[in-house]
Write a protein that binds this DNA or RNA. Structure first.
Lengths: 239, 239
DNA sequence: CGACTAATTGATCCAGTTCAATTCATGTGG
DNA sequence: CCACATGAATTGAACTGGATCAATTAGTCG
């Protein structure tokens, strides 16, 4: 899951966060311990982990790779809800069926735990229940930030938020926040941000021409001016 | 909270729901029992229950009235995340601060429970923890459906989804699903759907001219053709 | 190297915004 | 009880950000 969260740590009382995300970054030691008992599953690129409507038999933790969570209409319109990364949980929730589709963007490895087992354990161990609550609480905050981004921000602001979210994720994982890898296609990004691939491409070139980023490859973004990117994301500047 | 959910009960495996919502419709008998021990608070119209950044001291259940949950940027752009109705919980989550603003749209009555008490109780009673998890799970599903609506649907589709969500809420509460009361202003609806007040107004008149709804007052919508409204929401028809 | 798919770039279009009046409600004081 | 004030809603006209349509161009895999 992405963390498209508040820009400069201390956000003012009434200001909305830049963005946040929908799979679940693990704040869950208890969960992790239980998870360790689960089996692993390897997934090929573009293969689905589960589809909307499938019975929610398992909860998964991403061990390696990146998974795209999305909803789709019969007419083909698709909304990407989140991208889940190693350490994130997917498939949490109470419904008996999954409401999202989960597709690997690259070869991935998952740790699986039967949902029934998790519910049973949580019925005995209140700490585990609270951890699951905490995990969902983060997902919810992420979804609400994403909602703000899609409902209120311009195309340039959305792309800036998206890149900043990936950069902050890197910082949290002790990876270089100045170098952002994009395991997803332009189409995935477009469906995540409620835009088209052409608009994504145009905004990236605008950012490049403004010397705010460099596109070393089309899947590799070097952030040259993080401050400018944040100002853009906050609507304090425009391209 | 609104239920902008799947249109015709049985939604196909890969199809996205029409919409759902972000405060928490109570599936929580345990929660209710604990809540009953809390104090009540009366709120005037347009008064805030809490603001983003406030310490999350209490969790509230709406007893009467309607509460609008929103995020706002320094430049004034506002995203309404949800509308909470009697029976819904607001203020759930793990963060020490509220991330949303909660404003009463009309005089309201709330039941309050200290957040610390709730956490303590949940630490002892796993069933309560699971109920809270369930409540958040519903909020999350709602936020994800809303995300789809804002990211992918046209203005007419969004308005149709919104009206259907209120109609379904009525059905669930054994009120007339054919008569929808709008306690919120056009501006609240616009900020909820990521549109402008003018667009909301225009779409409502279009629906009226198409004999799909009747506007008995500007706060009172009579649904004349629910099927047509659903087809519209699903993108199977247009105005 | 050739075939395919993904990404970029350009030209045009249009849904929804913006700006600008009215019109409609609602409440208030004489 | 009505006249008038105030904010909300509607309606119209013009504009524009992002979509759509249409080529290229750049990667990537047999």
């Amino acid at each position: 899951m992405l963390y498209l969260d508040s820009a400069h740590g201390s956000s003012s009382m009434h200001s909305a966060a830049v963005m946040s995300s929908a799979a679940t970054m693990v704040p869950a030691e208890g969960l992790e311990a239980y998870m360790a008992t689960g089996s692993t599953r390897s997934i090929k690129a573009r293969e689905h982990v589960f589809s909307a409507g499938d019975a929610r038999t398992h909860v998964f933790r991403i061990e390696a790779g990146c998974v795209c969570l999305y909803k789709i209409m019969p007419d083909g319109r698709r909304q990407v809800i989140d991208f889940a990364y190693p350490g994130d949980y997917i498939g949490l929730g109470c419904d008996t069926e999954h409401s999202l589709n989960a597709q690997a963007l690259e070869p991935a490895r998952l740790r699986c735990l039967p949902a029934a087992t998790l519910t049973r354990l949580a019925g005995r161990d209140p700490a585990l229940g609270l951890k699951m609550y905490e995990a969902l609480s983060l997902e919810l905050a992420a979804a609400q930030d994403h909602l703000f981004t899609i409902g209120q921000r311009s195309a340039a602001e959305r792309v800036a938020c998206f890149l900043l979210a990936l950069s902050r994720r890197n910082r949290r994982r002790d990876k270089d926040p100045g170098l952002v890898v994009l395991p997803m296609t332009r189409s995935d990004i477009a469906d995540f941000l409620g835009l088209t691939i052409e608009t994504i491409s145009r905004m990236l070139t605008k950012l490049r021409l403004a010397k705010i980023i460099d596109l070393e490859q089309c899947t590799l973004v070097r952030i040259l001016d993080g401050m400018a990117l944040e100002r853009l994301a906050q609507g304090e500047a425009q391209l």
